[in-house]
Structure formats: structure tokens, C-alpha cells
Design a protein around this nucleic acid. Sequence first.
RNA 1: GGUCCGGUAGCUCAGCUGGAUAGAGCAUCAGCCUUCUAAGCUGAGGGUCAUAGGUUCGAAUCCUAUCCGGAUCACCA
Length: 596
Amino acid sequence: MNIEEYLLNIISDTLQELYGQSFNQKQMQVSKTKREFEGDYTLVVFPFLRISKKKPEDTAQEIGELLVKKNSCVEDFNVIKGFLNFSLSRSFWRNTLNSIASTHNFGFAKPNSSGKVKMVEFSSPNTNKPLHLGHIRNNLLGYSISNILESNGHKVLKVNLVNDRGIHICKSMIAWQKFGNGETPQSSGKKGDHLVGEYYVIFDREYKKQIQELVDKGVTEDEAKVQAPLIVEAQEMLRKWEAKDPEVYALWQKMNGWVYEGFDVTYKALGIEFDKIYYESETYLLGKKIVMEGLEKGVFSKRENGSVWADLRDDGLDEKLLLRADGTSVYMTQDIGTANQRFSDYRLDDHIYVVGNEQEYHFQVLKLILGKLGYDWSDHLYHLSYGMVQLPEGKMKSREGTVVDADDLVAEMITTAKEMSVDLGKLEGYSDDEANQIVRMVGLGALKYFILKVDPRKNMTFNPKESIDFNGNTGPFIQYTHARIKSVLRKADEAGIAIPIKIEVDTIAQKERDLIKLLLDFPAIVQQAGEQLSPALVANYAYELAKEYNQFYHDFTILNEENESIKGLRLMLSKEVADAICLSMGLLGISVPDRM
RNA sequence: GGUCCGGUAGCUCAGCUGGAUAGAGCAUCAGCCUUCUAAGCUGAGGGUCAUAGGUUCGAAUCCUAUCCGGAUCACCA
């Protein structure tokens, strides 16, 4: 049941009868009536003037009259300029609420045969440094979009691609070998990913020193970058790794193991999980093989030094390196392998990469190359290209230490939530366990909502100093609304007042009507969010609903209402709002507490 | 330079498949707790929707140009 479609249908019939002609959907614009006008929905009549050959007001008038006459659910209408505002009947709203209440998970599509199999790749960390704020946006987006697609009736596979090999990994390994003195997470008490990350930073520092020394000796900077002993050693290590040198392999496994332990902690803290994890180390060989096959088929070409290239100049792009002169693979090589692996592992309809917008070119090239290789599924690869997270000073830079660490940020959010709760006296009477649970939900809710409410495609600014608000358009505000409703429902239960299965009231106040109208929007929001891959739509909907409910809550009494049937309506409405909040926040990966 | 994305209130963001007087939150100011959770509610101030043209009955929204910001075009990932 989609309200807009239903209204379009009856309007279409009316226009047909009136003008003996049908109109397309573009000409029939129906939207919710603006707050300052009377009515539920509004039809713009300007497009019909040519046919009606009357003034806008008169045209609206005759459409309105016939609409009311022919449809019992249309109760009344008014005309302002070229806008026909019409009101739906009380019984319509009553039935609507009843039908929402009797539908399990109202707003979600049931898994059905038209649902597709969609793989969503997100997170995709490198194993040489811990996760930061940018990864948080990635993880939250990927997880939320997966939820949204599932609620649209699709089968979703959440996958992580761990970039566990490559020159960057070798850099931390070299640095640890040279400067680590055998330090381990156990010996130092450091979280594994943080420990390895420190050595990556040390590599960079020492490498820069060596470059400077060479430059001082009169070597040009470009040559120094290539000649510095550390980078030469790292490259040598990468070759050894690809040759499966036992010593290098063992070190690699040991250090990656530390990182995975660290990542697990972070994922758990964020509430993120995957259906399958792919490792670049397991797919790059396939990528190499495919590139070699492509070379044989003449899709790619080899240069004198042995490097392999794809020529995309006919497609308006450049030439792209696929294998280095020394035979080692690059980022593109392994992504070619991974994509193949996935489409042979599963029968996928679509594949979505949740990756930052700085990699738009990469995915454009990837898709092109796979198409050239003859894989017909290359048309079903989508890059959800999200904007970067910036600090007020600009881009995060690891060199300047301005990177916001994921673990730190989560911990800080929870601490702030705790201080806030204690200040407000919200945690009195709860056990430590309960209090911790609530505080965790609120802190994470604030962080997740803050990030997801912004359109994924846009860059966003994050100000760590000002921290994140807990009032206004925030996660905690919505969580609070939910807790508030739950509190009322508990009180009702204690007083032995049951929420009716079906309501029979005849009077519905404007505010109640507005709430039902909003609830009725939920399915379309979920659908749209799925089509546009935008959790922000869901976030903003949840906010609007919570805000509307709080106004209602302020203006109307629920439990003290004397009229039993009205009390029933308000209870039912409250419960449905709580459910919709819970479902929509769930799509964002945000839990809502029953009390806070 | 080529390509892509963005520019809406002091700040952070909605609105963008064209429709009525451009919306929220934060911040500022002023109110509301003996009644279901005040992490709430109500009100005030704050805008040449980057600029200039165009299309249209109607443009923040579509088109063109310009300006500003970001990303990208590696034998990095």
C-alpha cells in the first residue's frame, strides 16, 4: 500500500471523467500539504489549465468537487490559487493506523522473489595502521546500506576486503624488524593495530631522514626517494613475500595477526559485522593470472621493462599499470582478482563498493577493464562514492597527528555520554551494568547519527573539540523520544491499560493525523533510501518523526485522557511511533534504549 | 590543464524527479517542570539559496558561462 500511488489513482480517474483525458505522473503532482494550509495532501492544478480552459481557482474547484463526490475517503477540500488542498476522512486515518498497527515491521518489504542478491563491500582496511574517523564513516555507511537493502527485500552479503599485502605492509614490517626490539602487544600492552601503526609511522620518519641525507649529499630528491635504503629493503621484502619466503611470511602472519585482534575490538565496539572476509593476499594471484590472460588475448600490452598496461585512451582515460616491471601486482591487479572471485563464489545481481570519492577514477577504470575482458557482470558494479570527513582545519593528516583515531573517538563519545547522563541524574537507580549499556547506546548513537544524517556523497566536517551534541537533531534526541514512549507504555501496562488491537474512534486531532501521515511515509522512505543508497534519508525521517511526536506528547495527555477510545488511539499511535523509531534507527545500526 | 563533486542563516546540515511566505539543529535572546522522562516544548532575531544569463505560468531545484572550494589524472593503496 503506497499512499501516493493510491491518491494518484483516484485523481487520475477524476481527471479522466472531467476532461476525458489521462495525464501522466509528471503532470499530476501530489504532495503533503504544507503546514500553514488546511488539508492533508495537495494537488498542483497548473498542468491541467490547458485542458480545462479555466482559471486555476475554477479548475481546482471542479476537480475538488468531483474528487469529494466520488471518493468517500476524500472528505473536504479548499483551493488557494492553483493549489487544491484536500482532506482525507477520519475513517481513512483510523483505518490507516489500524492497518499500520497490524503489519509486522511496517515499512519493510518482505523478502520476495523480485529481491536481488547484492554484495556490499565496505571497511576494507589496510593492515598497517589502526582505523580512523574516515573508516568510521565507511563502516557505518556500509553497514547501514546493507540493512536498508535487506529491508527492501534483497538478499545482502556484507563483505570486507582486507588489504593485507603490499608495499605499505612491508614498510611496517621493516621498521619493526629494525627498530622494534621484539615489541609485541603482550609485552607493551598496546592494542595490536596501534602497535603496528606506530611502526608504519616510524618507517615514514626514518625514510624521510634517509632521503634528506641523500639530498644533502647532492642527490636529487626524486632519485633519493628511490635510492633510500629503507625503501629498497621494503621493495625487496615485497618480492620475497610474493615468493613466499618463509621468514618474511612468518613475520607477516605474526604482525597481521596483531592487527586483526585490534580490528576485531574496534568492529565490535562499533557494532559492525560481516558475512565474509576476503583477503587481498588470497585474490591477488587470481588477479595476476587474469591480467596475464588478458595480455595473451591482446587486451593489455607489455612494455620493454616487462610492466603490463591497459590502454584506455580510446575511452577518454589514460594508460593504467596492471603489473610492475618486477612482476609484483598493484591495487588494480588485486581488485580484478577479487571481483572475479566474488562473482564465481556467488550468483550476484549487484555488487556495491563503499569506497571514498578519492577512488572514483580507480573504479571507473576497474569497471572498464573488466568489461574489456568480457565479463558481462561488469555493468553491475557500483561505486558508492562517499565524501571525506574533514576537520575544521581541513584534511586529516597522519604526519601532523591530526588523525582522529576510531577507538579513541568511540571511547570519548561514551565517556561524554556518561558525564552527560550523570549530570542530568539519568542514571540514578540503575545497576552499573544497565548504566553502562545505556551510556554506550547513547554515546554510539550520537556518533553514528551525526555521521549518517549527512548525505553520503557530500564531504562533511567533524569538529572533535566541540564534541557531538546530545540535544536537537541528534541520535540521543531520537533515542530519548523512544525511551519516553516506552515509559508511557510501561506505565499503561502497570495500570492494566492494554493497547487496543483495533481502534474505533471518530475524533482524530490534527496532531494525531500528522503523526499517522508521517508513519505512512515510512515505506516510501525505506524504498528511496535503498534506491539512492542513502541512510541520510532514514536518519532525517527518524528525526522528523521524533520531533513531531514530542510536540504531540507535550500538547496531549495520554494516560490521563478520560475518553477511553481516544486514550486507545493515543496509546496505539505512541506504540507505532516507537516501533518506527526503533526500526529506522535499526537501519542506521543504532540501538534505542527503553529508558535513558 | 582534463574529468568528477560541491557552494543554502555566524556554525553543522535538510530541501534539488521545478510549485505556495526557503527549513531544522547548534549558538544568541525570552518563556514553560506540584500532571505520562525538561536529553523535552514554545517564541524572537538571523538568508541577494556563490555570481550572471537562459528555459517556464512558476527556478534553491533544470540549462549555459564565470568565480570559489574539494577530489582525481602514480611502477602508492
